[in-house]
Lab assay of single mutants.
Amino acid sequence: VKVFRALYTFEPRTPDELYFEEGDIIYITDMSDTNWWKGTSKGRTGLIPSNYVAEQ
Rank of each mutant, 00 (worst) to 15 (best):
V1H: 12
V1S: 11
V1G: 13
V1D: 08
V1N: 11
V1W: 13
V1P: 11
K2S: 08
K2N: 08
K2M: 10
K2F: 11
K2I: 08
K2R: 15
K2P: 06
K2V: 10
K2A: 11
K2G: 09
V3R: 10
V3N: 04
V3H: 06
V3C: 12
V3M: 11
F4D: 00
F4G: 02
F4L: 04
F4C: 08
F4A: 05
R5M: 13
R5T: 11
R5F: 14
R5L: 13
R5H: 09
R5P: 00
R5I: 15
R5A: 07
R5E: 07
A6F: 02
A6G: 05
A6I: 03
A6S: 03
A6T: 01
A6Q: 01
L7A: 03
L7I: 12
L7E: 04
Y8A: 12
Y8C: 15
Y8E: 07
Y8M: 13
Y8H: 11
Y8T: 07
Y8G: 06
Y8Q: 11
T9Q: 06
T9R: 12
F10A: 10
F10G: 01
F10L: 05
F10N: 07
F10V: 07
F10M: 05
F10I: 04
E11C: 15
E11I: 15
E11V: 15
E11Y: 15
E11R: 13
E11F: 15
P12I: 06
P12W: 05
P12Y: 05
P12M: 12
P12G: 07
P12Q: 03
P12A: 11
R13G: 09
R13T: 14
R13M: 11
R13H: 10
R13N: 12
T14F: 10
T14M: 09
T14Y: 12
T14K: 11
T14S: 14
T14E: 10
T14P: 02
P15H: 09
P15E: 14
P15R: 10
P15K: 11
P15Q: 10
P15S: 12
P15F: 08
D16N: 12
D16W: 13
D16S: 11
D16R: 08
D16M: 11
D16P: 04
D16V: 08
D16Q: 12
D16Y: 13
E17I: 03
E17T: 04
E17G: 12
E17S: 05
E17A: 07
L18D: 00
L18K: 01
L18V: 06
L18N: 01
L18M: 11
L18H: 01
L18Q: 00
L18T: 00
Y19P: 13
Y19Q: 11
Y19N: 07
Y19D: 07
Y19M: 09
Y19I: 03
F20V: 09
F20C: 04
F20T: 01
F20Q: 00
F20Y: 01
F20L: 07
F20A: 04
E21Q: 12
E21A: 09
E21C: 08
E21I: 08
E21K: 10
E21F: 07
E21R: 09
E22F: 07
E22S: 10
E22G: 06
E22R: 13
E22Q: 13
E22W: 06
G23C: 07
G23W: 05
G23A: 03
G23R: 03
G23F: 04
G23S: 03
G23T: 02
G23L: 03
D24E: 08
D24Q: 06
D24L: 03
D24W: 13
I25C: 09
I25D: 06
I25S: 05
I25V: 10
I25Q: 05
I26F: 03
I26P: 00
I26T: 07
I26E: 00
I26Q: 00
I26L: 13
I26V: 08
I26H: 00
Y27G: 03
Y27K: 04
Y27V: 11
Y27Q: 07
Y27M: 10
I28C: 02
I28M: 08
I28Y: 01
I28P: 00
I28Q: 01
I28L: 03
I28D: 00
T29Q: 09
T29N: 08
T29W: 15
T29S: 12
D30Y: 04
D30Q: 06
D30L: 04
D30I: 04
D30G: 04
D30M: 05
D30P: 02
D30T: 03
D30K: 03
M31E: 04
M31D: 09
M31N: 07
M31G: 03
M31R: 08
M31H: 06
M31S: 08
M31T: 09
S32W: 06
S32C: 08
S32N: 12
S32Y: 07
S32Q: 10
D33I: 05
D33H: 08
D33V: 06
D33T: 07
D33N: 11
D33S: 09
D33E: 07
D33G: 09
D33Q: 07
T34L: 14
T34K: 14
T34E: 14
T34M: 14
T34A: 15
T34Y: 09
T34H: 13
N35K: 14
N35D: 13
N35T: 13
N35M: 14
N35R: 13
N35H: 15
N35Y: 15
N35G: 12
N35F: 15
W36D: 01
W36F: 08
W36S: 02
W36G: 01
W36E: 01
W36K: 04
W36H: 03
W37N: 00
W37A: 00
W37C: 03
W37Y: 13
K38G: 05
K38E: 09
K38L: 15
K38A: 08
K38P: 05
K38V: 15
K38Q: 11
K38Y: 15
K38F: 15
G39W: 01
G39Q: 00
G39P: 00
G39R: 00
G39F: 02
G39L: 02
T40P: 02
T40S: 13
T40N: 11
T40V: 13
T40F: 15
S41N: 12
S41I: 14
S41E: 02
S41M: 12
S41F: 11
K42A: 13
K42L: 07
K42W: 06
K42V: 04
K42P: 02
G43Y: 03
G43S: 05
G43I: 02
G43R: 03
G43L: 03
R44S: 07
R44L: 09
R44T: 07
R44E: 06
R44G: 10
R44P: 03
R44V: 12
R44W: 06
R44I: 11
R44N: 10
T45N: 08
T45Y: 14
T45P: 07
T45K: 08
T45M: 08
T45S: 13
T45H: 13
T45R: 07
G46S: 00
G46M: 01
G46Q: 01
G46H: 02
L47Q: 04
L47G: 02
L47S: 04
L47E: 02
L47D: 02
L47W: 14
I48P: 02
I48R: 02
I48L: 14
I48E: 01
I48H: 00
I48D: 01
P49N: 08
P49I: 03
P49A: 05
P49T: 05
P49V: 02
P49Y: 06
S50E: 03
S50R: 11
S50F: 06
S50Y: 06
S50K: 10
S50D: 03
S50H: 07
S50L: 03
N51P: 06
N51T: 12
N51S: 14
N51A: 13
N51M: 11
Y52R: 04
Y52P: 01
Y52K: 06
Y52M: 12
Y52V: 07
Y52S: 09
V53E: 02
V53N: 01
V53K: 01
V53S: 01
V53L: 14
V53T: 02
A54F: 13
A54I: 15
A54D: 08
A54G: 10
A54N: 07
A54E: 15
A54K: 12
E55H: 10
E55Q: 12
Q56P: 09
Q56C: 15
Q56R: 09
Q56Y: 15
Q56E: 14
